[in-house]
Simulated scan of single mutants.
Amino acid sequence: MDDADEVFELQRPRLTALAYRMLGSRQDAEDLVQDAYFRWARAVDVANPEAWLTKVVSNLCLNELGSARVRREAYTGPWLPEPVFTDDDPVELRDTVSYALLTLMERLTSAERAVFVLKEAFGYSHQEIAGFLDLTDANARQLHSRARRRLGDRARFTPSAEEQQRLVERFLEAALEGNMAGLTSFFAADVTAWADGGGRVRAALRPITGREKVLRYLRGILRRLEGAEFVFTGLNGEFALAALRDGELFTVTVVEFGAEGITGLWTVMNPEKLRLLGRRLSHS
Rank of each mutant, 00 (worst) to 15 (best):
L60P: 05
L18F: 04
I208L: 03
R156S: 09
V191E: 00
A240M: 12
T16H: 00
F8C: 07
G182C: 09
L32I: 08
E260P: 12
D2L: 06
L265T: 04
V115N: 00
G152W: 14
L80F: 12
L249Q: 00
H126I: 10
A203E: 02
R206Y: 09
D134Q: 07
L249I: 01
A130M: 06
F116D: 08
S160Q: 08
F232A: 07
R42M: 14
T109M: 02
R107F: 03
N236C: 05
E226L: 12
R72D: 06
A189W: 11
I129C: 07
V252S: 02
V56A: 08
W79D: 10
L225E: 10
F85G: 01
R216V: 04
V231L: 04
L118Q: 03
E30K: 00
V70E: 13
L205Y: 02
F187Q: 07
T54V: 07
D153M: 04
A121I: 07
L281E: 00
F239K: 05
L53S: 09
E173G: 10
V70T: 14
P207E: 12
L15Q: 05
M22Q: 05
F38I: 09
D196A: 03
S110T: 09
R166Y: 02
G278L: 00
R202Y: 03
A140S: 11
Q34M: 13
A47L: 02
G199A: 09
D89F: 15
F232M: 07
V33R: 03
D28G: 10
N139S: 15
E256G: 00
R224W: 01
K213M: 01
N236Y: 06
G278T: 05
D137V: 14
W40Q: 08
L151H: 15
R211T: 15
R26E: 11
L183I: 06
M180K: 15
Q27I: 10
D153T: 11
G210K: 02
L32C: 04
L205S: 14
R148E: 07
E163P: 06
E238Q: 11
V57F: 03
V97F: 13
E92N: 15
T136K: 00
